[in-house]
Design a protein around this nucleic acid. Sequence first.
DNA 1: GATGAATGAGAATTCATTCAT
DNA 2: CATGAATGAATTCTCATTCAT
Lengths: 220, 220, 220, 220
Amino acid sequence: MTAYLAANIIQPMIEHSVKAEKTRRPTWRDEKAEERRLQLIDTALEVFARKGFDKTSVRELAAAAGVAQGLMYHYFKSKDKLLEAVVERHSFLPQLKSLLATLHNEPAAKVLKAVGRQFYDLLGQKESLMNIFFHETQSHPIVPRIWRGIMNEGISLFQNYLDERVKAGELRTHNTDVTARTLAYTIVLLRAGGVAFHQRTRPEAFIDQMVDNILSGIAA
Amino acid sequence: MTAYLAANIIQPMIEHSVKAEKTRRPTWRDEKAEERRLQLIDTALEVFARKGFDKTSVRELAAAAGVAQGLMYHYFKSKDKLLEAVVERHSFLPQLKSLLATLHNEPAAKVLKAVGRQFYDLLGQKESLMNIFFHETQSHPIVPRIWRGIMNEGISLFQNYLDERVKAGELRTHNTDVTARTLAYTIVLLRAGGVAFHQRTRPEAFIDQMVDNILSGIAA
Amino acid sequence: MTAYLAANIIQPMIEHSVKAEKTRRPTWRDEKAEERRLQLIDTALEVFARKGFDKTSVRELAAAAGVAQGLMYHYFKSKDKLLEAVVERHSFLPQLKSLLATLHNEPAAKVLKAVGRQFYDLLGQKESLMNIFFHETQSHPIVPRIWRGIMNEGISLFQNYLDERVKAGELRTHNTDVTARTLAYTIVLLRAGGVAFHQRTRPEAFIDQMVDNILSGIAA
Amino acid sequence: MTAYLAANIIQPMIEHSVKAEKTRRPTWRDEKAEERRLQLIDTALEVFARKGFDKTSVRELAAAAGVAQGLMYHYFKSKDKLLEAVVERHSFLPQLKSLLATLHNEPAAKVLKAVGRQFYDLLGQKESLMNIFFHETQSHPIVPRIWRGIMNEGISLFQNYLDERVKAGELRTHNTDVTARTLAYTIVLLRAGGVAFHQRTRPEAFIDQMVDNILSGIAA
DNA sequence: GATGAATGAGAATTCATTCAT
DNA sequence: CATGAATGAATTCTCATTCAT
């Protein structure tokens, strides 16, 4: 029995998502559970974005999802882990990648504006997540980690594209990292600060003109 | 800056302590009290920036300042009001204004890089405040209000300068709002994201090249 | 012991499972169920002894036994009832009785030491149960009831033996209750406190010398 | 300010009992606070003894003491620390020592019974504490530590006395550790088990006869 | 001004127990 | 038999705030 105990007590915390028992096709119950899990995550995303992580109690989250508070802890070990699940699930890295995958061998003058707008739109769709990225960075290391992952990957892909255009002779030889970041950072703050700052230029027009500026320069 | 202080710091102090008998020379006691008040604000700035507002208890703030918790409530009506005092006192609008005041009639090619770097440095000096701007925006309306005030004013002044240079014929006619924001936003995220994103270019060089790009364009 | 088991273990099992159709030969399923029931009890004994009743959750018990929590409630109406089942099943009264049954008409000088050591060993084998006796007495009346039953019965039998030896002229006329309890109590605490107190004398030697002292006295 | 912060933040937890500020004579407020502290401890002793540590909520403790729950945490860092404070404060080691200090050079035949009874009485006065010793040993290491300290010290002193009597020629040469423990352990269980076991002999008489047995032996 | 004792609401988390599958 | 999702009450602990001294 000692061996038995050892095997079962040492790691009594049951991972409920990844079933330990070999690989087994998910039963109806498992599917329901996974559905519920996602529902809880999605609800949490909205509430966290709206009220902020610290200002949201687990009781509220449960109420928003229409379940008992205790159930939250059936699905997530802690409120912190729930936040992690939220940012992991809603990371828009895939969308960003596919957005940037279409670029190859297209002339910059033609696509930069389109890509800028699409990026701006993507951030708009992910407003709740952006909110979390901006506000909950400090206490939860996973939040900046995900955010960093997205930005670094996106900028890297974007830079590759710019390098191609340099090779193709469309752009002059220059530090494409700077260009990529200038465009990306500006669009991010355009979105995040959009509510905050009195922007006089509509975002789409802003992006177009920014691209023009960077392509042709503003010197007389 | 003196006017600023007078309007925002002195007045709330008087309000709670000696009930301002018209205008009266500050006594020794008043000065001591003001000193203590500022000490509490400065300590709070650091602790809030490091731990976040919600994660910081009044007890901790008091301990960090070396006073009893109760004393906090002599100087600030509530923890929220303390945060307001912090962002009000440390708003760097004055510094930003004076930074931009030197620009008039200077050629853009010469000064844009310098101004960009100075702005970047200023943000660096105000790192704690930036932290608060980014993280505590949601629950405390005064935070984004101040932040907005700084950005809008700064961009407006910067834009005025750019318009001058257009008039002077140094820059071509264009939407200077876009240029101002492109530079400002990028530098802000360069600072805020500096730790987060793997930036391959050193900030000073980055700013120089960004200015070059925007002035001359990157098209071949 | 069989009678004991029949009375205490078999019956509650039947009660909850197959609703005892008179007396009926146990089927294979009944046997499996009984096996499982005993496994749950035995696991619970270990875990309760190690962690304490209150500090052990049903979830942990289930995990330790390798079953789902819900199953616990098929076999035991509540966590409290499980504890009762544990102390009932592991009561070592039968062993104690058989240990004391061998004494009759044996000379005290010869057997007291042996009996003392055997009692000490028995307590050692039942360490987990002893733990429960000592720690969970308060909240669960059945615990002290069982413990009392064992002690009272044991001491009574032991006293009978001593009375015999008095009658046989081997021991002087005296209050044998006192003697029986002195030996029994001391051995119990020797065991229970063994870990706690810095005992300078090894238990076996201790028991021998204690018996010598009581038989012959320590007066010069 | 950095030094300031370092000095005050690193150890923000204020020890409230031992004032850090030099040594300063206790003010009226300090005295009130200490009184309150003791009141909370004493209340806790009773309630813990009656209901058991785990079954007692901090809410109940506060109610029993007539204060707000939050105040408990002003005086004790946690419920566990409160228990530690309880056993530390009520350790009866001093009383036990003074009880045993009177023994020197007194003849054993005369004093053993008296000391036995006094020890029994002392345990009776400390019934609540004994309860805690017996029931809360497992989860709170300080409990057995204190209990061990008392027992070891007491037995050691008692043994010294017995050794003296051996040297004085009143007792025969023998392992006095065994004698000391036999008497002590039996009295402890006499007290602790008193309620539990059907003792047929009144405690005082029991102690007298036990001492007689050990001094003179029970052999015919 | 300054202290820290005192309050009570509310937070995260645990847990025995039930029950549909 | 067996599972584990679901419940909701209870628990420990934190914290902003007040106030007598």
